[in-house]
């Protein structure tokens, strides 16, 4: 009773592993990043096959899309700084001493053994383990939303999700702290055609992002996927130079980064009291509160991801920065 799809699964699994190997072994870094993006998209496909469309969406939008953009931007910066922008044959950017072959073999054998051990442990684990299915199904009516993954993210395990937004906030603070007014690569310029494309695409992307956010209450989608799609608006704006970050905009940017975390944690605290603990939304307002949180978190995620892409804090040259840098 072999499912014909098993062939598909096998091929997909094998290509994913092959791509993972290729990402690490191909010489050109640009090619490695492109292969990584393909790897991410195929993994997302596999997750759709495993009935995890939310995860697949998040992976495609954030894990692959935004990450790929971040990686390419960094590669561009490194090539600019090292003066190898026009010489794609200069593959390795950081000083590299080749690893001796025996070390590579020992390493491969070591990791192979680990993989073997993990595979054995995985195969002997119960096929259908106990899980949260029953608990979630039982609690769904009291969650305020109809989509289980959204219920888990925004209600049952809302604390995790708050902390995840905190991680994003920490990241953007750390990035602004690390990158200062140093010589920066000019953003890779988009041509005329692209500018036109950007102008046409922006409204469509906004619509898709908002739709993903809205539909998250009932169907796959939600704040993170919607946020990532909206972040691509930011990326396009930055790339096409429709928007150039200004020092004067730092205040509003900070506000946008903090918005999601702030409202999320404020709601979590304010709903408590009268016998309720933090994060315990009153049932009659649960849907409204969750939508409010999701909406503002989406904005924060979008702005934060775009800021992570842009990198450095927009500091006016000649400000205190220059003194500190020298």
């Amino acid at each position: 009773m072999t499912d014909p799809l098993v062939i598909f699964d096998l091929l997909l699994g094998l290509s994913i592993v092959a791509l993972a190997l290729a990402v690490l072994s191909v010489r050109d870094l640009f090619a490695a990043i492109v292969l990584f993006v393909i790897f991410g998209l195929l993994s997302a496909l596999a997750w759709v096959r495993l009935s995890a469309p939310d995860v697949a969406l998040a992976e495609a939008a954030i894990g692959t899309g935004v990450t790929g953009a971040l990686l390419l931007k960094t590669l561009h910066h490194l090539r600019y700084v090292t003066g190898t922008l026009d010489r794609p044959e200069a593959m390795n950017l950081t000083p590299v001493t080749p690893v001796p072959m025996p070390v590579l073999w020992v390493n491969a054998a070591f990791c192979g053994l680990i993989a073997l051990g993990l595979a054995v442990a995985f195969l002997e684990a119960p096929k259908v383990g106990p899980g949260f299915d029953a608990l979630v199904a039982e609690a769904m009516p009291a969650s305020g939303v109809d989509h289980p993954v959204t219920a888990v993210l925004l209600n049952f395990r809302a604390y995790d999700t708050l902390m995840e937004v905190v991680v994003l906030l920490a990241a953007v603070i750390a990035v602004w702290q690390v990158e200062r007014g140093l010589s920066e690569a000019p953003a890779p310029h988009l041509g005329e055609v692209w500018q036109g494309f950007a102008r046409l695409a922006l409204p469509a992307i906004v619509v898709v992002g908002t739709y993903l956010l809205w539909v998250g209450a009932e169907a796959p989608g939600g704040a993170f996927q919607g946020g990532a799609v909206l972040a691509s608006v930011g990326l396009l704006l930055l790339l096409s130079r429709f928007y150039v970050p200004q020092p004067a905009h730092r205040g509003i940017a900070r506000l946008a980064f903090v918005l999601g975390t702030g409202v999320f944690s404020a709601v979590a605290l304010l709903v408590s009291g009268g016998g309720r603990v933090a994060f315990e939304y009153p049932l009659e307002h649960a849907k409204t509160l969750i939508l409010l949180i999701e909406g503002l978190v989406t904005i924060s995620i979008a702005v934060t991801l775009a800021a992570l892409f842009h990198g450095r804090e927009p500091v006016a040259l000649g400000e205190e920065e220059r003194r500190n840098d020298t």
Binding site: L169, G262, S272
Partner: peptide, 23 residues
């Protein structure tokens, strides 16, 4: 509002972090 000190041990530094970042 809750009076649970554990919740506050988590939220006070978080609110503080957001406030210092904004101001």
């Amino acid at each position: 509002m809750t009076t649970d000190p554990m919740t506050f041990a988590l939220f006070l530094p978080l609110f503080g972090a957001m406030a210092v970042f904004l101001l």
